[in-house]
Write a protein that binds this DNA or RNA. Structure first.
Lengths: 119, 119
DNA sequence: CCGAATCCTTTAGGATACTG
DNA sequence: CAGTATCCTAAAGGATTCGG
C-alpha cells in the first residue's frame, strides 16, 4: 500500500469493518448478548460456515470480537463484542445515519427519473 | 445481497466510500479545491489512469464528486466535491479518529509482543 | 490532457465435503 | 456444534496500448 497523509487514516478504520458480512455481524454482536456460532449463523441467512469463521477470525484478530471456548461436549463457543470493539459503536452509528439518508436519496432520485420518463 | 435490519444501514454507506483509492481521493477533494485529472493523479502515487477514472466515475455516480469539463484544447477536466459529498465530511472524520487510535493500538501491541519475546 | 479498450493477475467470496 | 480442507467463481485491481 501507498503512503497516506496522516490526516487520512480512515482507510485504516475501513479495513477493520469492511467485508461482505462484517456490518451485519457487528450489528448483532453490538446488541451486547454473546452469540454462539450457530446462533450467529442463523441470524445471517445465506452465509456459509466458512465465511462466518473467516470474518469472525478477522474481527478477533483486531480484538473487536472476543471468542470464548467452553471445553465441553458438544462444543460451545461464544462470540461477543470486546470493550475495544464497543468503541466502534458511535463510528458505526454515524455511518449508519449517513447510509440511511443516502439510501433514501438514491430511492428518491430513482423515483424522479421514472416520473419524468413518462413526460 | 441479503436483507438487513433497518437499523443496520452502514453497509450501504460503506459501499460508497470503499475502494482501494477512494479514501485518499476523497481526502484530497475534501480540501475544497477542485483538482484536474492529472493533479489528482500526481497526488496518488501508484494509481493508474484506469483506476483513477473508475473510482472517480463511481463517486460521480453517487453524486459525491462533480466532474466539470472545459471544452478546450488541450482538454481540461476538474473534479470537486459536491454539496452532498460534503455531508460525508463528519462521517469520515469520525472514521479517521477511530483509524488513528486503532493504528496506534496495533503498533503498541506489536511493540509489546516484540518486547516480551526477548524475555 | 484525459481518457477508453483490452487483457491479465490477485483477492474476496462461495459450494461442498469432511472431522473432533 | 463448531469448525477445516479443497476446489472453484466472480469481482476488484492493474499493465499496457491506443485515440480524440
Amino acid at each position: 500500500m501507498q503512503k497516506k497523509p496522516a490526516q487520512c487514516q480512515f482507510g485504516a478504520a475501513l479495513d477493520s469493518i469492511v467485508g461482505k458480512w462484517k456490518p451485519i455481524i457487528l450489528y448483532h454482536l453490538l446488541q451486547g448478548k454473546p452469540l454462539r456460532f450457530n446462533e450467529l449463523r442463523r441470524l445471517l441467512p445465506g452465509i456459509t460456515q466458512r465465511m462466518l469463521t473467516l470474518h469472525l477470525r478477522e474481527l478477533e484478530e483486531e480484538e473487536i470480537v472476543k471468542r470464548v471456548i467452553y471445553p465441553q461436549i458438544p462444543p460451545k463457543v461464544e462470540y461477543s463484542i470486546t470493550e475495544y470493539g464497543m468503541s466502534l459503536s458511535p463510528v458505526l452509528e454515524t455511518l449508519h445515519q449517513w447510509g440511511v439518508t443516502h439510501t433514501e436519496r438514491k430511492q428518491l432520485i430513482k423515483e424522479i427519473n421514472e416520473q419524468t420518463k413518462t413526460d
